[in-house]
Design a protein around this nucleic acid. Sequence first.
DNA 1: TGCAAACTATACCGTTAGAGTATAGATTAA
DNA 2: TTAATCTATACTCTAACGGTATAGTTTGCA
Lengths: 135, 135
Amino acid sequence: MQLNQATDYSFRIVLYLSSLAPGEIATAKTIAQREEIPMRYLLKTIRSLVKAGIVRSYRGVDGGFALAKSPKDITLLDVVEAVEGPVRINRCLKDHEYCTKHWVKPCPVHRVLGGIQATLIRELGDHNFADLLAR
Amino acid sequence: MQLNQATDYSFRIVLYLSSLAPGEIATAKTIAQREEIPMRYLLKTIRSLVKAGIVRSYRGVDGGFALAKSPKDITLLDVVEAVEGPVRINRCLKDHEYCTKHWVKPCPVHRVLGGIQATLIRELGDHNFADLLAR
DNA sequence: TGCAAACTATACCGTTAGAGTATAGATTAA
DNA sequence: TTAATCTATACTCTAACGGTATAGTTTGCA
């Protein structure tokens, strides 16, 4: 029931890139040092942000990373899903095999957890990185 | 970011015990069969519910398990915490070492996640097993 | 008294996911 | 052409998860 380390790093990566001038590029080395993330692990982790269209990468000399869109268009949810995939707080919400055991209708736990998960997703989606920076 | 199998089993165990007459005892074998939980794993898992004061155990012949209190006094949160410990959605909310890196005040991600976690905890605490059964 | 039906305690096992490292390769500016 | 960067893939180590095994304790009852 916990976001993993890569996600936590990713929050900090995106927050840092959000603090730069629009379009400004930072190298992996700079980000790693600033945010105290192991360099090679950062390189691996940031790939999911690139693939998700949150971060853009530039190869070669003077290359590096920059946000692919405006901080206000990136939410916590975007980052979580980029790194961990869809938010599912319980297996029965992922695989309907579970929880249909002794209930004709989906079991009540199933339904209530579904509601709680929906709230969680909504809240994560409600916070973008422009707002975060402003605080 | 997912509740584990033991927690899911525990929801079903408590829900089943809630459906019995007050004070009625069910053996591990019965619960295991009804809820399709491996018997030995159930015996291990249900210990945390006993230790948390949610379930009472009775040893010896005619022994078994029953709720230690009324279903309306047991919430989803009680069960989650009994099995997994306190709900912490991010490491920085567990260990203040993290996230204080480049911020004098706690970092904004930290603070927002704290709020989201509070909502999650409140919602889990809002649903008791009497309500769940009634649905 | 002794036995069998239950739970308890502890320890073990196999698999998977998480966190991080390593190596070789591709791209690009100068 | 070279050096600075990112990319791809694969590897390692550890801890947690899910489950099993064994031996022990408690209790009702014949």
